[in-house]
Design a protein around this nucleic acid. Sequence first.
DNA 1: ACCGCGTCATGCACACAGCGTATGACGCGA
DNA 2: TCGCGTCATACGCTGTGTGCATGACGCGGT
Lengths: 311, 311
Amino acid sequence: MTRYPDLDSLAVLLLVARKGSIGQAAEELGLSQPSVSRRMVALENAMRVQLLHRTRQGTVLTPTGRVVVDWASTLLEAADDFRRSVGALQAQSAVSVRAAVSMTIAEHHAPVWVARLHRTSPDYVVSMEVHNSREVADLVSSGAVDVGFVESPTVPKGLRRRRIGWDVLVLAVPPGHPWADRGEVTAAELAAVPLLVREPGSGTRETVEGALRRRGLTMTVGMTMASNTALKSAAMAGIGPVVLSELALHAELGSGQLVRVEVSDLPLRRPLSAVLRATERTPPGVTALLSVVGVRPDRPPRGPSAPRPSA
Amino acid sequence: MTRYPDLDSLAVLLLVARKGSIGQAAEELGLSQPSVSRRMVALENAMRVQLLHRTRQGTVLTPTGRVVVDWASTLLEAADDFRRSVGALQAQSAVSVRAAVSMTIAEHHAPVWVARLHRTSPDYVVSMEVHNSREVADLVSSGAVDVGFVESPTVPKGLRRRRIGWDVLVLAVPPGHPWADRGEVTAAELAAVPLLVREPGSGTRETVEGALRRRGLTMTVGMTMASNTALKSAAMAGIGPVVLSELALHAELGSGQLVRVEVSDLPLRRPLSAVLRATERTPPGVTALLSVVGVRPDRPPRGPSAPRPSA
DNA sequence: ACCGCGTCATGCACACAGCGTATGACGCGA
DNA sequence: TCGCGTCATACGCTGTGTGCATGACGCGGT
């Protein structure tokens, strides 16, 4: 089995580096000094790299160790974001902000937002539910949640909407595909081939269908899968072209595993919106969340600025 | 102890999701079916979230599970990058590309490059040593490594250089600091206050010193630390202003823990360069590495394009 | 010169988590 | 009704991680 690094040990390494002493790190962790000492030995053995320089006056990082610590701290930050995001799913009590989000937003934006809110206002605890766009709107209407985030262009009556950015959909094919060299196709060509798409009701799918319908075209469904990751794998395996959020395809497009193909005469983008009850005054937690998301407190004259996918 | 998620279990979860069956995932992993079953139960208990829907016909993800799987896959990608980067430090045998890099590049660029090279050309194995700029040049000259990456503006004779981008240095202070509100200071003001800097010989430090010297000024050394992370912590604690690569400060500037201050009359940037032996023909592994780094095969008419800090 | 303090490493015993084997419960289809 | 495939549970073992006790060593005060 491909062994992944033990994040707990990496966290201990960071603490040892910061304290400059194995014993002091152990004390802060509530562990014994020998335990931490052996953990560091085990870590060095696993990595086959000398990380620490032990002296009688304490323990300092080797040059290699400094680099590893830096890499480890970014990895641990990613793990923290993951942990906090999962924590928001637990729908527990003592929550300051109750949010409902649609799938694409949950997958790609929510972790960034939760992390940002935690860094700027650590006191707020977010609870988050994942639903499709219609359900999100219902949850906001009924008062089950305080705020919703959706990709669909319209919202029901009684709710007000704040534009928070754009989600750009991208057509992608594997490198060998005939379209890969052309780099551009027409909407009619796109409609003619079986496409890999999400299940019915998904915002991504409806956006594509709607855009084609406005051109008088109908989407040809190739294979339906309920997960973006599965769709990407299928596309890479050459099953067919796929249309997904640019954010979902970021890694694959960057590494060349998939190639972006422009659709010349089809606007494949959709607004990302926050959804709130029109009548009510927004609670402070929601305001804080909206501000880290990129929405100014009240009806601002600011253009749409897509939030960066984070580091 | 703050428990981090177990990456191995997350990897198992991804496999279960892909296979649609606990037993089949177990077989692929060379584990027993009960073992994987228990692991998934443990994972769900730890997260306090229902991830899987078990039927007699197999196991599928719950909607929540799909989101968690997506988050987990990005976390695992980060972990893979970490693992590969650490692997490159092992200086083992059977290596296709031997590189030497300076600290800032090792910390912020190298993991991205290693990951990208792995995705485009998985056969190449990179070995990497971390040294300061002068040592990197020496290692290339002597033939100990095939290619070097440095931040310094000059290279010794006998070596040729390829510009691969720019590293922008940023002056940063904590939010309470008087400079934080002003947003801009002069080079003379910067030179007058004790600065948090890296140890002598560091490229970051020399760049600042050199830029000030060209203005007829001398840097005032406040506190010297051998690690960027330590410097950031010190700056956030209010010990003093710090000048570091924009990449190193990305997270802190984004979350508002540190505030960027412009230095009006001081160009705080330095070129990132690949360093090669002038006489020799470059081996194929080096060419592949340079191409993922952003250098075209041979003397291209392309402007500098800073590579993105990765996802 | 010496002794105490702080540093890290090692030896030993124990607890627990994770694993495999064996077995049970259940639904689907022949 | 029976066989097959699914997942869960029970039991015993092994290995890893832990704490406690102890040892080795340098530095600095007395």
